[in-house]
Write a protein that binds this DNA or RNA. Structure first.
Length: 730
RNA sequence: GCGCGGUUAGCUCAGUUGGUAGAGCAACUCGUUUACACCGAGAAGGCCGGGGGUUCAAGUCCCUCACCGCGCACCA
């Protein structure tokens, strides 16, 4: 039997197999020297460079078939093990994997694998979010290509279309997570619109209602003109644009004027007061007087409210209670009339025939023209101004008076505040806890009703509304485990240990999970919140598919392998600092994998193809030796890696591992071993390699598992090997 | 307006409690018989954003300014 491998290019290497003995020839082209290494006993795969493509899918399906992602099969021989549970941040069913997901889920996978190896009964639960507005918009866009709208179809048919979409595209992102090596228990996959999840949402609402925390009211809310739905405060994104500020004279009834400044002159049609700061000496004597509102000629009064900033504009504010959240609060304090003059389509209503039915912009022009004619327009100034836009469609958001459902936030926020302040829930990095507190301490009541079709129906008669998608997401850690039923999983795994998330959903999701958990289960939903770095482009800009600045993690996997992507990403994510993503680091990850591959090949040629998997106590190593030193460094590396993971400093752990494996082990000890062929040295090489594979496994699971399988007779997979716990006698 | 980051080698970033500035990538010089050229050995590269202060000693602590980025609020 004979096999010849000739590898051209950099390798300049040729191998052949004869009588089950492998020889590895190095052909040096310059001087035609031929060398030979005895590769006796070593698996023939080591004759080739490491090829992730050949390995990754094969290894992943071996893990999956072995059932190792299921907590029941992690380490079957032990009973009463501590549990470790993470519920994934469920990606939207509209999405595709981006670099943020890759980093986030690599982080969770490192934690999951680490705990699994340390003997915890470990569950990382996967799932997806129905993502109300986002999904509805995506499906509508799809229909538009066929010339259809959701209104053509009608509600039932449209919802059918969305379910079809979900079946077709909803799991794409989960499949992509498999390519990264995520060890999620797929048998427990949840969706936020599952039947029993819908029950959980209903239960939550009824609970709030019984407690008197729910109310329906006509209040000023953020309304997306395009999506035709209410939004919560957190669903608005502001962009700075240049606009004008107009200074307008309002005639005083007793003669003279008060000048107000506004960026939205058309809303004066709905003014029901002018407000000034009570301490403002310029206006003190005017408080209580009446002005004749230009154009509509209504009499409105001048009131005092300390929310008015003396130094902004003229210090006198026109109050439009129905179309400004701040004005509505002033109006409530002063019992002012709410005059709704803008409807859900962004058109003027209820004023007079001249303006009714016209768009806001047109009315603005008309109002300004009238004011100019009347000599009431003092001046126009250019200012930078923040315009509120819908976070899903980017459309203009108008504050309008609308009948919606709300949850009282104060009593709920209080619970979350106390959990964060007492460190029952800990944030990594710590600063995000303070950010969460700031919001919780200042949040307004939560508008939970949405006028879209896709979502959980609000369980009251006559309501066509659905819940804010985040209302259901807020229940995720416990509803995904079966709550409100007392399922075995809920009993066993709740409260969970960790949640990993991006910083932009700290308030909209994380804070709401904390108070929901405390409210419904009387327990915090997780101990730790890990806020991972934001992955930016090399220029420090946001990665965005639409801007063309996104980098597809799957392309990087194709090019460098999943382990390289994982290691390179984690290596860059130091202390949660933003990452200016550089592909160089992924290339570094690949080189590191290659180095590990070659280290393994070397060690295995020295040890007859197998490595030891025993406790360090069994090694008989003399004092003050090179062996003693590398073993001590290995021990230190393991300890420090553990500390770094505990602190959620995964980047630091990656640096430690890199330095130990490459500099200490390869450059020093392996070089030393070439001149020292003692049994002691060989034993140490094998021992170090076995432990290196274990410690690296949570970070680069595929290659370590592959090497393990080639170097052990034991069929047992590395994924369920015990984490090394050997101690060196000093 | 309030708050939070960042500013260290050409690039991307480390730098623990103050004690002679580090890595990867790039560039430079050597090196191919014996794991790996996806490698090894070596050298080079820095007023640690500016200014002030504390200290025997400051990249590190304090003050201040500048620039970049982000969050919250305002957005009348």
């Amino acid at each position: 039997m004979r096999q010849i491998n000739i590898i051209f290019g950099h390798q300049k290497q040729m191998s052949f197999k004869n009588k089950n003995v492998f020889y590895n020839f190095h052909l040096h082209l310059k001087n035609f020297v031929i060398s030979c290494t005895n590769m006796d006993g070593i698996n023939e795969k080591f004759l080739k460079p490491y090829d992730p493509k050949d390995v990754e899918s094969r290894i992943y399906s071996k893990w999956e078939k072995g059932g190792f992602f299921k907590p029941e099969k992690n380490l079957a021989e032990q009973d009463n093990r501590p549990t470790f549970c993470i519920t994934i941040a469920p990606p939207n069913i509209t999405g595709n994997l981006h670099m943020g997901h890759a980093l986030e889920n690599t982080t969770s996978d490192i934690l999951t694998r680490w705990h699994r190896m340390r003997g915890f009964e470990t569950l990382w639960l996967p799932g997806t979010d129905h993502a109300g507005i986002a999904t509805q918009n995506a499906v509508e866009k799809n229909l538009k290509k066929k010339g259809l709208t959701r209104h053509n179809l009608g509600k039932d048919k449209f919802l059918e279309e969305i379910w079809k979409w979900k079946d077709e595209y909803g799991n794409i992102i989960l499949d992509q997570l498999k390519k990264i090596g995520c060890s999620l228990d797929w048998s427990r996959t949840r969706f936020t619109m599952d039947d029993d999840y819908q029950e959980a949402v209903k239960t939550a609402f009824l609970h709030y209602q019984e407690k008197g925390l729910i109310y329906q009211g006509e209040r000023v809310i953020n309304w997306c003109i395009k999506d035709q739905t209410a939004l919560s405060d957190l669903e608005i994104e502001y962009t700075e644009e240049e606009t004008s500020m107009w200074f307008i004279k309002y005639p005083l009834k007793g003669g003279g004027f008060i000048v107000v400044a506004t960026t939205r002159p058309e809303t004066m049609l709905g003014d029901t007061a002018v407000a000034v700061n009570p301490e403002d000496v310029r206006y003190k004597k005017l408080i209580g007087q009446e002005v004749v509102l230009p154009i509509t000629e209504r009499n409105i009064s001048i009131i005092a409210d300390d929310k008015v900033d003396k130094d902004f504009g003229t210090g006198a504010v026109k109050v439009t209670p129905a179309h400004s959240i701040i004005d509505s609060e002033i109006a409530e304090r002063h019992n002012l009339t709410f005059l709704k003059i803008i409807d859900e389509f962004g058109k003027i209503i209820g004023v007079n025939n001249e303006f009714n039915g016209s768009k806001i912009k047109e009315v603005r022009e008309k109002v300004l023209a009238k004011l100019t004619t009347a000599g009431l327009l003092v001046k126009e100034e250019k200012i930078a101004h923040n315009i509120g836009k819908c976070y899903r469609c980017g459309g203009i958001v108008e504050p309008i008076l609308s009948k919606q459902w709300f949850i009282k936030m104060a009593p709920l926020a209080e619970k979350a505040i106390s959990a964060i302040e007492t460190k029952e829930v800990i944030y990594y990095p710590e600063k995000w806890g303070r950010v969460a507190l700031d919001w919780l301490k200042n949040s307004r009541d939560w508008c939970i009703s949405r006028q879209i079709w896709w979502g959980h129906k609000i369980p009251v008669p006559d309501s066509n509304d659905v819940f804010d998608t985040w209302f259901s997401s807020a229940l995720w850690p416990f509803a995904a485990l079966g709550w409100p039923k007392k399922t075995a999983d809920f009993e066993k795994f709740y409260p969970t240990q960790t949640i990993t998330s991006a910083r932009d959903i700290i308030h909209i999701w994380i804070s709401r999970m904390i108070f929901s958990g405390l409210e419904f289960t009387k327990q915090k939903p997780f101990n730790k919140v890990i806020i991972h770095a934001t992955v930016l482009t090399k220029d420090g800009k946001r990665m965005s598919k639409s801007l063309g600045t996104g980098i597809d993690p799957l392309e990087l996997i194709e090019k460098y392998g999943a382990d390289a992507l994982r290691f390179g990403l984690i290596y860059q994510a130091m202390g949660g600092q933003d990452i200016r993503f550089s592909e160089d680091h992924i290339a570094m990850g690949k080189k590191f994998c290659n180095k590990l591959w070659n280290i393994s090949r070397f060690v295995l040629t020295k040890t007859g193809g197998k490595i030891r998997n025993n406790d360090i106590e069994n090694l008989n190593i003399s004092d003050n030796s090179q062996e003693k030193e590398i073993l001590s460094k290995l021990e230190k590396c393991r300890e420090n890696t553990e500390k770094s993971i505990e602190r959620s400093d995964f980047g630091e752990a990656a640096h430690l591992l890199y330095d130990f494996v490459w500099k200490d082990f390869a450059d020093k000890f392996i070089e030393y071993s070439k001149d020292n062929d003692s049994p002691e040295t060989k034993e140490t090489l094998a021992f170090c390699l076995a432990n290196i594979l274990k410690i690296l496994h949570p970070f680069i699971p595929f290659i370590t598992e592959e090497i393990w399988s080639l170097a052990q007779d034991d069929e047992r997979m590395l994924i369920v090997e015990g984490w090394p716990k050997g101690k060196i006698k000093k």
